[in-house]
């Protein structure tokens, strides 16, 4: 079987945009393979009970379909601003769409009386104040974790958040060996992840 490459996926996207039905089908199939199981897992972990399996399956399919269409139509517009980081951007879009579904879905669940504890999460669309308190709490936990990182890692994260380009960031560390920095950053991520988990950060912040 031919190995999928990012170049191939982006070429399919280009073709699909030109109304090439086959390319579109193939492009959607690749995204579906990457994102359907993840969508399904999130929905089931939030709303899952075996009883409603068919509805959740259908919703997961719908979400992925919306996601594929969004990626297809929006990538061209954002490619330059995203510096070509396709999968990184696609992941953000995917989480964004699931977030929209989760928020909208709350009313749907109330209508059909399918409430369970898992839906009483922090992001209640009807309670702006609660949203803000929870958000502030999440940010505090996040900054608490970041402050425990090494100075170099904090600096790199800071420069990234200041939207410096990669060249500008690397220029800030003229005497550092690039490979050593890579290794340190990787360790920093492992540490950050552990700290966030210890601080009770809910990754899926929607």
């Amino acid at each position: 079987m031919e190995e999928v490459t990012i170049k191939k996926i982006l070429a399919l996207l280009e073709q699909a945009k030109k109304d090439d039905a086959k390319a579109r089908e193939e492009f959607f199939a690749h995204l579906r393979k990457l994102y359907l199981s993840r969508t399904r897992n999130i929905l089931w972990s939030r709303y899952g009970s075996f009883k409603h399996r068919n509805e959740l399956e259908k919703d997961a399919e719908d979400i992925v379909q919306v996601f594929c269409l969004t990626v297809l139509t929006k990538w061209e517009k954002v490619e330059r601003a995203e510096n070509g980081y396709f999968i990184r951007w696609a992941n953000v879009v995917h989480h964004h769409i699931i977030g929209a579904y989760v928020r909208g879905n709350r009313r749907w669940r109330e209508l059909f009386d399918l409430k369970d504890e898992s839906t009483s999460d922090i992001y209640d669309a009807d309670s702006h104040e609660e949203d803000q308190v929870a958000l502030r709490d999440q940010i505090e936990r996040m900054t608490g974790a970041i402050k425990k990182l090494s100075e170099t890692c904090q600096k790199i994260l800071g420069f990234f958040l200041e939207a410096l380009s990669k060249d500008e960031i690397w220029e800030k560390f003229p005497n550092e060996d690039r490979n050593v920095l890579y290794k340190r950053l990787h360790d920093c991520r492992v540490k950050l992840k552990k700290l966030l988990e210890a601080n009770g950060i809910d990754y899926a912040m929607y």
Binding site: V92, M142, I201, Y206
Partner: peptide, 16 residues
């Protein structure tokens, strides 16, 4: 990890 990174970007002012 994507929501964490985008969360940081979204609230960069507080984090910085």
């Amino acid at each position: 990890f994507s929501p964490v990174i985008s969360g940081m970007e979204e609230h960069r002012a507080q984090i910085l």
